[in-house]
Computed example of a mutant assay.
Amino acid sequence: MQSLDLKDLKIAIVGAGYGGAAAAKALSLLGADVTVYEQAGRIREVGAGIGLRPATMNRFRQWGIHDAIAQVSSPSAYFEILTPTGAPILKESWPADGEQTRTHLIHRGDFIEALLGALPEGMVRLGHRLEGVEDKGDGAVLTFADGTTAEADLVIGADGIKSVVRQQLFSDQAPVFSGEHAYRAVISVADAHGMVTDDNLRMYIGRGTKVYLLPLRHRDQVSFDITALHPDGTWTPQVTKEDMLRTVEGFDERLVDITRGLDMGTVNIRAVYDIDPIDTWHSDSVVLIGDAAHSMLHHQGQGANSAIEDAGALADALSRAGHLKEGLAEYQAIRKPVTDKLQAVSRQGWTEDEIDEVFPGQTPETTETPDIPASAATKE
Rank of each mutant, 00 (worst) to 15 (best):
E242M: 08
K162I: 02
P120M: 02
I106L: 04
V287L: 01
P95K: 07
T103H: 11
G179P: 10
K379F: 15
I112Y: 00
V248C: 07
I187P: 03
A152M: 04
R246G: 05
T103Y: 10
R260V: 13
Q167C: 11
T247Y: 08
D232A: 12
K379A: 15
I11Y: 00
K241F: 04
V196W: 03
I11Q: 00
A185I: 04
R102W: 06
V141D: 04
D5H: 06
G41W: 08
E309L: 13
V211A: 12
E151P: 02
P337N: 09
E92L: 08
R260S: 15
I81V: 14
S73K: 07
L130A: 01
V189L: 13
D172N: 14
L142V: 02
W235K: 13
E134G: 04
D353R: 11
S285F: 06
V239A: 13
R108F: 01
M244C: 07
L142Q: 02
R129D: 06
D110Q: 01
Q71T: 13
D243P: 04
M264C: 11
G132M: 09
A16F: 00
A23F: 00
S178K: 08
N200G: 08
Y18C: 10
L119Q: 03
V141L: 12
E330L: 14
K91L: 08
S163H: 03
M244I: 12
H218W: 11
T247A: 10
K241T: 12
P54W: 07
G51S: 15
G139K: 04
D356C: 04
D220N: 15
A55M: 11
H294C: 03
R320H: 13
D263Y: 11
R53C: 10
S375G: 14
N58F: 05
R44I: 10
Q100H: 11
V189G: 01
T101V: 15
G301F: 01
E326G: 13
G86R: 07
D276M: 12
H299R: 12
F111M: 05
Q100G: 09
D274V: 08
Q167N: 15
H282M: 14
Y183K: 09
G147N: 05
E92D: 13
L154R: 01
Q2R: 14
L6S: 01
G15I: 01
E249L: 13
V358K: 09
E309T: 05
